[in-house]
């Protein structure tokens, strides 16, 4: 299915959903939950948190579906909701007792531990990717979001700016600072 076909199918399902056809939403979830989960999973260090926030993102999208502008990309809208929820989640957590840094340093939660349930996760992530991801996890929330959206999700700077509601210049600054900090942390690759 091409992007535009996929977009039209999303629009059809959203319209059905707004007409009271709830199973249409289940189809939307099944089309997009993997993508949304990935954005979130790369920003949060644990798969349990990622699953919780993925659920929260979809429920939020569901209750606000009437505010979605059908002329826009539904996956981009979901990713915007997801990354902002992650930023909120990380901020909340930073203000709680155990900081993310402490958890990572104490090895309680490896930076890239895939969910146990699926066989794909038994695959070992390339060592470079693992080290870089571990460093990304230690960045401040917004820098982390920018790096994940830019390099893992492959979004453009202006798309990121729109999703995170910040000027493109700020996105660039965060991207550069984030990458510099990651280089500093990982050393030679």
């Amino acid at each position: 299915m091409s992007d535009s076909e996929a977009g039209r199918e999303d629009a059809r399902l959203i319209a059905r959903c707004l007409d009271g056809d709830r199973p249409a939403f289940d189809l939307l979830v099944s089309r997009h939950y993997r993508g949304v989960y990935n954005v979130i999973y790369r920003m949060l260090p644990s798969s349990d948190d990622a699953a919780d926030v993925t659920q929260e993102a979809f429920l939020r999208a569901y209750t606000r579906l009437d505010t979605f502008n059908l002329g826009r990309s539904f996956p981009a809208w979901l990713r915007a909701i997801a990354s902002n929820l992650c930023i909120d989640h990380l901020r909340r957590r930073r203000s709680q007792t155990v900081s993310l840094d402490q958890r990572l340093e104490s090895g309680l939660e490896p930076a890239d531990e895939s969910p146990d349930a699926s066989p794909e996760n038994q695959l070992t992530v390339a060592e470079d990717s693992r080290r870089v991801l571990a460093a990304v996890h230690q960045l401040p929330e917004k820098q982390k979001a920018v790096l994940v959206l830019r390099h893992i999700e492959g979004m453009k700077l202006n798309e990121i700016a729109e999703a995170l509601r910040m000027p493109v210049g700020t996105v660039k600054t965060m991207l550069f600072r984030g990458r510099a900090a990651v280089r500093e942390m990982v050393g030679e690759l």
């Binding site: 990622a50 699953a51 969910p115 699926s118 470079d128 990304v136 492959g154």
Partner: peptide
């Protein structure tokens, strides 16, 4: 390149069921 090569994580089917 290392970030671009990060493999996709696969959520459990259970997540889909719990969302719906």
């Amino acid at each position: 390149a290392a970030l671009a090569a990060v493999p996709a994580a696969v959520p459990s089917e259970e997540l889909l069921r719990s969302i719906t």
